[in-house]
Amino acid sequence: MHVRTPEQASFAGAIDDFCRAQTGTRAQRDALTQHGAEFHNRVLYGQMAELGWLGVGISPEQGGSGGGLSEVCLFTERTNYGLAPVGGYVTTAVAAGPYAKFGTPAQREKVLGGIVRGRVEAIAISEPGAGSDVAAISCRARRISDGFIINGQKTWCSNAHLADHLLLIARTQTGTRHEGLTMFCVPTNTPGVEIRGIPTLNGKDVNDVYFTDCFLPESAVVGKVDQAWPQVMAGLNSERLILAAAMLGRGRRAFDDALAYVKERKQFGKSVGSFQALKHRIADLATELDCCELLLYRVAAMADEAPERMLPREASMAKLKATETAKRVALEGVQMMGGYGYATEYDMESHLRATVISTVYGGTSEIQRDIIGKTFGL
């Protein structure tokens, strides 16, 4: 595993202690999530805000502690390992980056200051016709004398139903693909905004968002009009690494749950983990998880050392490796636990539901491989 600084080790230990106390048992988690139906508990999230943890990646000017991407990834990893129902944090942490880099002082105070105090933020980029092909966005922002009128649909918006604002990408010019896109800060209670949940295998976490003659003032623009594409590209390091950290945490938890089971389960007079088929499977998974951790935190350190540097190859590798590994660990966990891995009595089936989608959102594994290949001139 990678070497943490004393401050990072202390931070990770505090998170682990908190999770053991607050979310360490199935009964505690069921009470916080309505028996698994919800993925974000505002009370628990508020307690983390009071501890100062939600501001780990936020500037001291907005009340945060000024940590880097390494610390954001550490918080994400450990809360996911601890199965803390704070699912709103991932999109919040991803959304924070563009506001920090391109937002006005008023936007940074409102949004980033709100994050420190426990508010959730979300992103609205994908559309029914613009998933992997982000440049195909058609949601329209028509300029009028005192602002913009938004019409269109966004989809797969994680945590939009929990969020105070949506970081919206809309088209302000037609005739081009990468030019003519603009980033907006949209309060979710703005007239003309409708959020509808999308039922999924993993419960209530994604939404369709409809914009109908939604008025936004000029002050809602984040960064520069028609320049959202380079702004989005500038945030991809953070998005991919944060998603990788979440799945590293969940993958490690699935591994530890599977390991505990195969040590305790007896068949043919001995623990099933002592049989070579499972022993070698455990060895392979443990090795892969350590590889994920080393890659993730190496790339996070690179990003912290040079925040303006684009790391398309390295960040895509981290996202690809962590999500594919977490999914594999959960699938192997189900197999090793047999029928119990499929039963809701145990957490393994929820690990599977949480990880199987991770190779799709935030850029599919196929897209990540394509990006990596392009960096080699292919």
Rank of each mutant, 00 (worst) to 15 (best):
S126C: 15
A315T: 11
G67K: 13
F275M: 09
I123W: 01
I123R: 07
R4I: 09
G377P: 07
L51R: 15
R42D: 11
V116T: 03
V90R: 04
E314A: 07
E121R: 05
T25A: 13
K270P: 03
V193K: 12
V120Q: 06
Y89T: 11
G114R: 10
G362L: 08
Q8L: 07
T212N: 12
T323R: 06
R369Q: 00
A326P: 03
S274L: 00
R108L: 09
F18A: 15
C291A: 11
G175I: 14
G55A: 12
T91W: 01
L289C: 06
L54I: 01
I198P: 02
D133A: 01
A14P: 07
H280Y: 02
R313W: 00
G113C: 13
P128K: 09
G341N: 05
L167G: 03
H165R: 02
A318D: 05
V272M: 00
R328N: 07
A343V: 15
V120P: 09
T76M: 13
A170T: 00
Y45R: 13
I242Q: 10
S271L: 08
T359E: 01
T33M: 03
Q231N: 12
C292L: 04
T76N: 10
P307A: 09
R29V: 14
D17P: 07
T200L: 13
H351S: 03
L248I: 12
S238P: 00
G203H: 10
V225W: 07
P230T: 12
E109P: 04
T355M: 08
L181Y: 04
P191H: 09
L289T: 01
K270W: 05
L162N: 08
I198L: 12
S145N: 06
K110V: 04
S358M: 15
I149E: 06
G338T: 15
D205Y: 07
L112A: 11
M1H: 12
F268Q: 02
A130Q: 06
E121V: 14
I198G: 12
P128D: 10
I149P: 08
A106H: 10
K266W: 15
L296N: 03
T172R: 10
G57N: 11
L311F: 02
F39E: 10
A286Y: 07
S126G: 08
A244T: 13
Q276K: 00
Y340D: 05
M310G: 04
E71W: 07
G180H: 09
I58Y: 05
Y89D: 09
S10N: 13
P217Q: 09
I372Y: 00
L167N: 03
G68D: 11
T25Y: 03
M1E: 13
T104S: 14
V232A: 01
R108F: 06
A27P: 00
A136I: 05
A330F: 10
A326W: 10
L32A: 01
V206R: 06
G114W: 13
E288K: 03
S70H: 11
Y342H: 06
A315H: 03
M310V: 05
F184K: 03
A277C: 14
A258Q: 06
G333Y: 09
M302P: 02
Q276R: 00
M348H: 05
P230H: 12
L32T: 12
S138A: 15
E109H: 08
G249C: 04
Q34P: 01
L74W: 12
C19H: 11
V272W: 00
V43I: 04
